[in-house]
Each structure stands twice: as structure tokens, then as C-alpha cells.
Design a protein around this nucleic acid. Sequence first.
DNA 1: CGATAATTTGAATTAACTCAACTGTTGTGG
DNA 2: CCACAACAGTTGAGTTAATTCAAATTATCG
Lengths: 254, 254
Amino acid sequence: MSANSKVVSLDGIKVACSGCSLTTLCLPFGLDSEDVERLERIIKRNRPVHRGQLLFSPGEQFRSLYVIKTGAVKTFTQTPAGDEHVIGFHLPGEMVGLDAIQNDHHGCFAKALETTAVCELPFDTLEHLSATIPSLQHQMLRLLSREISVEANMISLLNNSTAEERLASFLLSISDRFSRRGFSAVDFFLAMSRQDIGSYLGLALETVSRLFTRLQDHGILKVDRKHVQIKDLDKLRSMLKHHLPCHSTLDQPS
Amino acid sequence: MSANSKVVSLDGIKVACSGCSLTTLCLPFGLDSEDVERLERIIKRNRPVHRGQLLFSPGEQFRSLYVIKTGAVKTFTQTPAGDEHVIGFHLPGEMVGLDAIQNDHHGCFAKALETTAVCELPFDTLEHLSATIPSLQHQMLRLLSREISVEANMISLLNNSTAEERLASFLLSISDRFSRRGFSAVDFFLAMSRQDIGSYLGLALETVSRLFTRLQDHGILKVDRKHVQIKDLDKLRSMLKHHLPCHSTLDQPS
DNA sequence: CGATAATTTGAATTAACTCAACTGTTGTGG
DNA sequence: CCACAACAGTTGAGTTAATTCAAATTATCG
């Protein structure tokens, strides 16, 4: 609502992708330093988004893609009754808003789960730049394609897995994404509530809670509210080895 | 396996997007006639794919995207135990293989459900062409983005709907896609088996069968094996009005 | 025409859900 | 700074939608 007038000082400040720890996980991947510089120039630095604040809402005109720099964001829809349906969680290095390219309008909410810094990429400018930087165009297509693969995997998980396998898969995904960022793969804080996890995995929040307890009883996890420690990563992994596809396309770098 | 040597006569034959009834549903949408001509020149005409034949398999090098011209294709993965997990069904005007851009390798099988004609788009050439035709680049991004939206909708469906709502949604999707192609929205043949539908919707094949019977008993459908007639479209639609998101992004043209 | 595969239908089972009560945590205003 | 309200999480008990297993029936294809 309120305009950016109070933070003009931040506007136009050059964003340094080149110095960013996310550079190999993010859009600049595969670009040479000159092209990264051209990309940097179109990125808007935004003021941090605080817990509970929205990046965008359904129906809003699509102008920009957002890359999470720090923090965490959930995307979700809402029913007329007011129930939230969580679509996904977005961690540093991950892009939000890709579904809106389709028809120029956002189709979901994006809400910060904690204080979050984002890079804003005005899409029309990004598209123009893509046409002149082949590796950027390629990287854009890869990112979209990757999102399709990730979602296809999610569909497969929802179709073919028990509640326990879903939670195991979720925790391994979070673990993997944290570890790529250089954080611990076995000790982290979840930014989202049990309700959010349940909504995302198609489970009742009570089921999620019970599963955390059960995994802790089995010595696989140590759970203290949002603080999760994986005590037996191999056992957690073995929980979803069963009906996994032969050729898994996931877990490819960048 | 066998090379194209027996059908060289078909190779290099110009594919006429301009005369194709799918042109407004397909990649050429939004391109002017000159650009459509440039696109046509890179499309390979392939010999028809017969029922049961594969377009590609997991692990195979990604070279081309495919657009279904006529017929139907299912994409699926396979577990070590040999169980199929259906990811999606692809009807005329729809593209297959978008998930493989990500890492240059296919991650699933694509199998013809009936005799199917496809347009093959060599991806590296398509990418080069995109860089010089802004509207083609835009259309590519839109197509990928659309796929993301469709999959997000599927995730929401699997997370929040009963078996009955899933089947209703599936039938309405098929109906919609047929009607866009100029075919009847209320009278069509399903190319896929009950097993395939069940796998796609995360249901046991017996459940799918029972639901068809129940919808027929309620006067909503007339089902004779693969032949489905929708007798009460409004009632079918009302079955999934309940926990639908407020702002649905789906059902946008092209 | 016969064999194999696909579909339908029935009966019993179960994983996850809903409802409900309770506990612990967090943040806010007096 | 504490009290209390609102929220988030845990645990228990009973219910149910969809499953699995089983059997019968109907297509389809060589």
C-alpha cells in the first residue's frame, strides 16, 4: 500500500550479484561476468519484507519475479471460506512468481514467513535482456523447467506416498536446500507452522504433529517446536526409497 | 531404435503451422505470419507414433520438444517394482518434454495412448530462433509458466479434494480441452484406462470405476467403457465449486 | 475362438481425518 | 514486568473415505 517514498535511498542502488553467495544457485548461474553485470543493473533492491507481509496477491498485475535472498516465503491460495492452501515454500536462491508469466496476473499469495530480503526482477526488462544474452535466456528456461520437474515430483509424492513418506520427503528437501546454501543439513529451524506443512503435504496438522513425535521416538529426529535436528539421515532417506521412480530427475545442481 | 531411414521422404517436408487448426492453441500463438514461417522451417515432421510406442524414456538425452497434433500421450515414471506413476495426459495442441529442459535429460516416459501425430521441435534450434523473435521467446515462457500453473492446480486438487471431486475435475479438464479443439465438450472417448486415470488422480482403479458408476447413477454421466457423455455439465461443475481458490488462474485462453 | 487384459462389484480393512481436550508459547497492553 | 488472551502444538478417541483383496464379468487381440 504505502509507497516506496521513505526508502528512495535504497532505490537504484546497484545489487551485487557478483558478490552474492547465491550466485551459483540463482539466475546468474552460467553467465560470464560481463553479463552478470548487465543483469545486476536491472535488479531492484527492495526494503526487507517482514513476517506476515505480502509480496503479491491473486489478481494483481504481474510485473516482477522475486528471488529470495534471505528468509523464507510461502505461496498459497485461499478458498472463499478463508482456508489457506499452501502451494510451496521458497528459500534463499529460489524464485517466486513464475506461474504468473502465463497470463500477466498473479494467481496466489506470497507471504513472508520471517523477515525476508528479496531481489526484484522487472519481468519486461528481464525478457528484453534475455533476448540479447543467450545464456540468460537458457537459464530462464532451465529455471522454469526445473519448477515443472519439482512440481511433478510433488504430484508423484502426493499420489503415491503415505503421510510418513511425505514428511520424510519434505524434511529431506528442506535439508538439501539448506545445505546447498552452506547451512547445516541436519540442524535447522523451520520457518513454517505445522498447519502450513500439513496444508502443503495434504495432511491434517494433527497428523504432522503426530509424525514429528513418532520420528523422534524412532530416534530419527530431535524436534523442539520449530527446531529440527536430523539424528539419522540414512534412516530418513530410506523411508522414501520404496516407490521412488527409477530415474529421478531431481537433485541436479542448480 | 530403428532409424528414420525408411521414411526419409517425410523428413524435411514443410510443416504448415499456418494451416494447422491448432495454431491459436499452440506455439505460433501471437506470432505474425513471417515469424510463423520461420518457426515452421525448424519443425520436423515425424511418422505417426502408434499406440504403446514411446516418444522418449527417462535418462535419454533431451533434444526436442513435441507438440501433439492428433491423438493422445501419457507421461509417467516407473518404480523399480515396475509400477507406473502417471504424471499427465497430453492432447492435441499440448507440448510434451518441458521438464527435460532443466538438465538435458528426460525424466519420464512419454507413451502414445493411441495413434498419435506429433510435431518435433529441436530445442537448440528453437532456442536460437527465440532469441531473434521476441514474441516466440515470450510464448515459450508463457507455455512453461502455464505448465507450472496447471501442475500447481493439480497439487491443490490432490491436497484438498475427495475422490469424487478429483474425477469431476479430471472430466471437466478433458471436456474443456476437447471443446477448445472444436470437439464436443459433452461427448468424447477417453484414450486412457481406468488404471491410468487412477494413477494420475492418486486413486485406486477400483475407486475410479465405482465413481463412474456413481456419477452415472446420479444422472451426471452416461458411461460406456471409454465413451463418456456428460449429461449434466452444471452439476458436474458444481461438484468442485466448494474448496476452489477465490482467484482461479486457470482457464485462460492459450 | 480362446486367452489375456480391462472393468466392475462386493466385503473387510486401515490410514488418516475430525472432533475434542489440554498444554505450552508468544506477544501485548495495563 | 506481569497477566492474560490468542495462538500453536500435542495427544486421545472414534469415524470414515478410500484402500486392498477377491471374484465375477466383459472386452480385445492374435
